[in-house]
Design a protein around this nucleic acid. Structure first.
Lengths: 281, 281
DNA sequence: TATCAAGGTATCGTTGTGCGATACTTTGTG
DNA sequence: CACAAAGTATCGCACAACGATACCTTGATA
């Protein structure tokens, strides 16, 4: 829970063990089973992945806080294993399709996704609008299934996209079914930054919305993450009533108002979430 | 290309460096930049991912060909980094949503996907049937975008799913735009196994279908991967005409025949592929 | 076309990380 | 309740992986 993993360590000069203690070294000392090399490898993978564009060796070294030698060895190894591909022209490294293998393993093993997919397809078929499913990871709401309708949302329709839980409708829906104290702690563990002029950044206002979602069974947001986008979500719960994810539907302000969303879309989203909330998780 | 990575090394007894040379050791000797620990870590990740269900420590050790100590250290480290989660009840390890972060990095960096998604959404909107996009990885056709319609295809609608290139319509579409000798070599590099009674397993017949796809500009298959599923694909090419992927559409035999697919669906799929084949890859 | 800096690649000697073994603890099964 | 099977903790040694550095390549500038 309260475990923050591998925060980006301060960048180091060129090639040196110099400087003060490093996250990896600290972890290694604390835990004799921890293999630092793997932490470095994942750091490289995360760095390249987060960049959303091919990176040169020195860029990787700088961005990941590793030395040049280390970056060289790590990229070389990861390329050999097929997780990075080096463009022979530009000599830049990029993620490969192999990342999808791991994603597929996760997706196919998750009962919520396997069970939910059917209902989501039905839901999108019925109401003709974009339907998504996501879950909470740390303080983020992260999409695990996306069924985009219309050509809105450009490339924001990708699996794995993260949004801050405090302003995403999905995040609020999940928080509304958590223990209130826990939800509050989660909200407080991160500054409330505005993603659009519409984002609520007042702690009280956000908590009030979560409280409202608890009463109504759904959470509707008005362009708090993306201008022009209205969203509504309902929580998916396990057999104990604990939230494991949320069904979300998003529409354009061009053809919808918040009131229409609350009246027409919210009941559908709640119904879909109810169908997915089987007592088996 | 002709590089087969990390074949599952023969399983070892319990905990020993015994036995003959191992893929990792061999690679390490050949290449001084290769870090064996990372190969082991990825092997664990791949093992758990491929299992499609949580695994115990000993299961992981056995399936990955690693010793108990190694499996312990690796699972521990990967859990610490957030890539595996250990269920405290069952003590079994499972993939986490973190795999989707890497997938998201890959997806958002790939120009074919960014550009293609719009056209795929349009296509699904227009013809109302399932539309997918995929690319070739080794001898497999692998789905990178899936827009399922109807509730067919149960959970086969996940990103990252692989199908043998020789029998998948997407695979044949891509092969049809490759250098014929190269395509033939790829076909020959793997035994032609039947996935359904309808799968073509005769080398000549498969090559003939690829040749036909070359002439017609699309490839249609009749239940060769899944019974009850007809599929049609058209290749996506880069500025040099080299294939980089394929658009695929699949429908049920309940409401379609192969002829209908060839006449009505194929032109649409080809048009979508043409739109995505921008001269910028 | 020549010059040069910046980035990428290859090599090396040393050392501390990660190795396999094994003893210990917990779990759940007959 | 006893026992086997699975999971966890600890240890000392060896060599894998480390950072440094020297050597190439590339492409930018004049």
């Amino acid at each position: 829970m309260g475990e923050d993993r591998a925060g980006a360590a301060g960048l180091r000069a060129k090639n040196g063990p110099s400087g003060a203690e490093d996250a990896a070294a600290e972890a290694a000392r604390a835990d004799p089973l921890f293999i630092a090399a793997i932490e470095r490898a994942m750091r490289v993978l995360e760095t390249v992945s987060a960049n959303h564009a091919p990176m040169s060796l020195t860029e990787i070294a700088a961005a990941s806080g590793l030395g040049k030698s280390a970056a060289q060895r790590l990229t070389h190894t990861l390329s050999g294993l097929g997780y990075l591909r080096k463009d022979p022209e530009t000599r830049r490294y990029a993620m490969t399709v192999r990342a999808l293998d791991l994603a597929h393993g996760f997706l196919s093993a998750d009962p919520m996704i396997n069970n939910g997919l059917l209902h989501l397809i039905d839901a999108r078929e019925r109401n003709g609008e974009t339907v998504n499913m996501g879950r909470l990871d740390g303080t983020d709401f992260i999409y695990v299934v996306r069924l985009p309708a219309r050509r809105m949302n450009v490339a924001a329709a990708l699996i794995g996209r993260r949004q801050p839980a405090y302003c995403a409708s999905g995040g609020r829906a999940i928080l509304s079914r958590m223990d209130p104290a826990e939800a509050e702690a989660l909200i407080d563990s991160r500054p409330l930054r505005a993603l659009t002029p519409m984002t609520l950044t007042d702690r009280g206002a956000v908590l009030e919305r979560i409280e409202q979602a608890r009463r109504e069974g759904f959470s509707a947001t008005d362009q708090e993450v993306l201008l022009g986008e209205l969203a509504v979500s309902a929580p998916i719960t396990d057999r104990n009533g604990a939230p494991v994810g949320a069904v979300q539907s998003s529409v354009s302000t061009a053809s919808w108002t918040l009131e229409m969303v609350r009246e027409r879309l919210a009941p559908r989203v709640m119904e879909t979430a109810r169908l997915i909330s089987a007592p088996r998780y």
